[in-house]
């Protein structure tokens, strides 16, 4: 499935919840499915700056696809990063780098998160795209 198709799928999925609480319950459930970062690699240099709770993000290339893993000490943050990983992980670097992220507004995540968290969300996306750009350069060599 393409990045755009996964985003559409998430928009549909989240549109089922009218109530903010159900939406958050779902987010928390998604957090439990997060592909966790290898404990050996869960080091300070993998921490994303700009998040008020701790978020570790790691990425590696599997064939020509980028695979992301992550973790967080806060459960809602874990849900958010799980959503992002579902969208971006398993795609080619150039697709990730070029992807737009309007779906975040559409599933009501950015709107429903406090400004500091929203900043964390922006930092997470930025970090994922940075990984993609780096892998893109690596593959071109």
């Amino acid at each position: 499935m393409s990045i755009a198709a996964i985003q559409e799928e998430l928009i549909d999925e989240f549109s089922l919840f009218e109530d903010w609480m159900d939406k958050y319950e779902h987010l928390i459930q998604l957090g439990k499915t997060l592909p966790l970062i290898d404990p050996q690699r869960k080091t300070d240099d993998k921490l994303i700056k700009g998040c008020q709770s701790k978020v570790w993000l790691d990425a590696y290339l599997k064939e020509d696809k980028v695979i992301f893993t992550a973790d967080s000490d806060a459960i809602i943050t874990k849900g958010i990063i799980a959503v992002l990983i579902r969208v971006f992980s398993g795609h080619r670097p150039e697709e990730i780098a070029a992807a737009n992220t309007n779906f975040i507004d559409e599933i009501g995540l950015k709107e429903h998160l406090s400004p500091t968290r929203a900043n964390g969300l922006v930092s997470m996306i930025k970090q994922m795209k940075l990984y993609a750009v780096a892998f893109q350069a690596q593959l071109k060599k």
Partner: peptide, 8 residues
């Protein structure tokens, strides 16, 4: 539970 989760 992380304090940020509670605050949110």
């Amino acid at each position: 539970i992380h304090p940020y989760d509670v605050g949110t």
